[in-house]
């Protein structure tokens, strides 16, 4: 094993981990500020200048609270639940290409932790096991509201996973590869997938909202019906991990949308730069797109009311899945025609 490679990958893992957590922490602050702005309030402004230390104060508060485990709960599963949620939220960041290769000490460093040749399928895999955290946590609490929340969440995730998977097939067809690196490279400059696949993007975006359990799809923690949903019995940092995992997965799915549809680190006029300048500008472009999506996620949360459960299922099964299948068929036919198969 190449020692330099080992150090390089290890430091990249640590940096990506810290960035994911940092962005997620400041997303909470940003979300509260945005909510305040939309509702014509001021929002958090006590801790530090403009309330900038609010996420740290929240974190400390979470840690200081009493860590309570209900008497009749399944203790181990109760503890593991939030951990699985956080793990599945973070693990997708391994395959995200954060920017063009950068050069440090004469070494070409890829800004991606691992380049699988099955990148997109890896995302599906992680999404499909993402439901375990909520399910285990909700069941182990031994509370009927938690169980309802867990069952709602898992049926919602299973339903929207299908439409998400079918919609992404069009991107695979366009690129001819499952690797995220190839998908980003094929969108060089301004040649972004969104211009070819707007319908696919819409479906993927709605499914991402559902998969991250964000409003208007947050039926799993519907306060008006289920107290707190799957995390009713949780307290202290375990609750914090559940809430925090939502923000991490919001960041990661925003990054994924930027990669799959908006060219990732590509930006118009990138051919005029090279080397490290290009790398830094690319990373900046990537994060700008990602933050824009995080903003849209929050904007939607504070604008649209929650769905009813049957509306949610109708949207998933009777609108999104047929739309995704038709979109996939049309794309396949156009590509086959383009390649001269008729």
């Amino acid at each position: 094993m190449d020692t330099a490679l080992l150090i390089e990958k290890f430091s990249l893992v640590v940096i990506v981990f810290l960035i994911s957590l940092g962005v997620a922490a400041y997303s909470t602050y940003f979300e509260r500020k945005l909510a305040a702005w939309i509702q014509d309030r001021i929002g958090p402004d006590r801790a530090g200048p403009f309330g900038l230390l609010q996420p740290i104060a929240d974190g400390v508060k979470m840690f200081m609270k009493e860590d309570f485990i209900p008497k009749n709960s399944d203790k181990w599963l109760f503890i593991i639940g939030p951990g699985i949620s956080m793990f599945t939220a973070l693990i997708t960041s391994t395959i995200i290409p954060w920017g063009p290769p950068i050069e440090i000490f004469g070494r070409q460093i890829e800004l991606q932790i691992a380049d699988f040749n099955i990148g997109i399928l890896f995302i599906f895999g992680v999404v499909s096991i993402g439901v375990y955290g909520i399910m285990i946590g909700g069941w182990a609490s031994n509370n009927k509201y938690s169980l309802f929340g867990a069952i709602r969440a898992s049926s919602q995730m299973i339903s929207y996973e299908l439409a998400m998977g079918i919609s992404l097939i069009t991107i695979i067809l366009l690129t001819g590869s499952l690797s995220l690196t190839d998908i980003v490279k094929s969108q060089h400059g301004m040649n972004w997938n969104i211009f070819y696949q707007p319908v696919c993007f819409l479906i993927f975006f709605i499914c991402s909202l559902a998969e991250t359990n964000r409003a208007p799809f947050d039926l799993a923690e519907c306060e008006s019906e289920l107290v707190g949903g799957y995390h009713t019995e949780y307290s202290s940092m375990k609750l914090g991990l559940f809430l925090f995992a939502e923000y991490v997965s919001m960041f990661i799915s925003s990054a994924l949308m930027a990669i799959l549809f908006f060219g990732g680190y590509n930006f118009p006029g990138m051919d005029y730069f090279d080397g490290n300048t290009l790398a830094i500008l690319g990373v900046l472009a990537f994060f700008t797109k990602t933050f824009l999506f995080i903003f849209v996620f929050m904007w939607i949360r504070w604008t649209i009311p929650r769905f009813r459960f049957d509306q949610l299922m109708h949207l998933g099964w009777k609108t999104l899945i047929p739309a995704a299948i038709i979109n996939m068929l049309i794309t396949a036919i156009v590509i086959a025609f383009h390649k001269g198969w008729f």
Binding site: G125, V131, M135, L147
Partner: peptide, 25 residues
């Protein structure tokens, strides 16, 4: 790698979730 990830998607991600679903209910 393909078979590995499909194994996870299909068995761990779909079939076992349904098992859990039924058992929890």
């Amino acid at each position: 790698q393909f078979i590995a990830i499909v194994n996870i998607i299909v068995y761990a991600g779909a079939i076992m979730v349904l098992f859990l679903f039924v058992l929890m209910l």
